[in-house]
Write a protein that binds this DNA or RNA. Sequence first.
DNA 1: CCGAATATTGACCGATTGGTCGAGTGCTTT
DNA 2: AAAGCACTCGACCAATCGGTCAATATTCGG
Lengths: 208, 208
Amino acid sequence: MDNTLAMVEGEGRQRILAAAEKLFSAKAFDAVSMNAIACEAGISKANIYHYFPNKDTLYLAVLRVASHNLRAVLNEAVSAHGSVLDVLRHFARNHLQALLNRPQLVRLVWREILERGAPRAQEFAEQGFADMFSALVDVLKLGQSRGEFRQDFDPALVATLLLGANVFFFQSRDILRHYPPITFADDPAGYDAGIVEILLRGLVPASS
Amino acid sequence: MDNTLAMVEGEGRQRILAAAEKLFSAKAFDAVSMNAIACEAGISKANIYHYFPNKDTLYLAVLRVASHNLRAVLNEAVSAHGSVLDVLRHFARNHLQALLNRPQLVRLVWREILERGAPRAQEFAEQGFADMFSALVDVLKLGQSRGEFRQDFDPALVATLLLGANVFFFQSRDILRHYPPITFADDPAGYDAGIVEILLRGLVPASS
DNA sequence: CCGAATATTGACCGATTGGTCGAGTGCTTT
DNA sequence: AAAGCACTCGACCAATCGGTCAATATTCGG
């Protein structure tokens, strides 16, 4: 009942989950074999089936913990204080930084979101989405109620715009880096700073 | 040497390519078997190997034509005339509409972009990216040189923001639809109109 | 120290994978 | 007619797939 070291409650399970997470985040479901997972975990393939009844269950478990972890990382990253403007600025920067810090988790969860038609656990992968979204919408509504923002825009739309900017940056970073006019591919903080500044002030000069 | 009907230059090839495109756009590379492609095309599996030496070559061919078609669709959709503002508005709307009109092509090409680590044809799938990007940057630069836009923002950054907003909308549409505060999930034109309006005027009241 | 429960394994299963092969089609060209 | 040629197919291949199973280590409470 006690832990005699190196046997900290499901140590084998953890190794399997870690190996599976690594492989599943790098390649698609069908491209990862149980053999490869076992090899990565340093155990035999049959041993996996002692902990998980089949491949789908293992994948679901991986997605479950990954989604939970990603959610925690994101929620923690975007908690901020200060004026609404500062909160918004920190929100953008920390959110993107969190994505870039955990690329494996993001890729894993996002792939599940993208791959419709095989409804494995969409509802489940969407939770982090909802968290970010409602938190951001709340910030924007607060800014509106305080009169710091215009009243005539849809907070949900701006939230989508901001979240999308970060996700898109995360996804296309390697591509963006190839284009000469882009200088912010390796400067996510500068990217978000520019994004937020444009969002706040707009493209059209104030005189208009 | 002439075409005796139903033999219009590679008719079999086209059927295979069409079937492969359909399946590859729905599921990942390893999740699509040559048998499934043959079945979808209504021919025997061995027959595929008469036209394509192996699965990778077939996939590459599919990606090639898909990328070319998508590129054409996008380029055609975003050509507009009028004032810089109108061009920008039409750019956003038509670009998103083009994405939504050809979801198969978009998913196929975008999956290839996402799936790094298996460099099949990234450089190849990125061409459409470059087209959209440079076209949009040109529009923004024109707006700046005409004095209709501020001078103090990075056109490449705004282009990323706008393209990202559309791609993100395309990707997350089904998820966005589940959230009550979102009313634009089924109104892409309204979405882009709101996006552009915010981009132009900003979130902060003009008095600031 | 011993039995019981838990871990772990190699060998094996039927099914499916990407890919090959040789034999047949039917059409074209000499 | 016959040779050539593009095309199509069923049968087949070794390899790998997800998954099973009986046998063996390992651990642990009594």
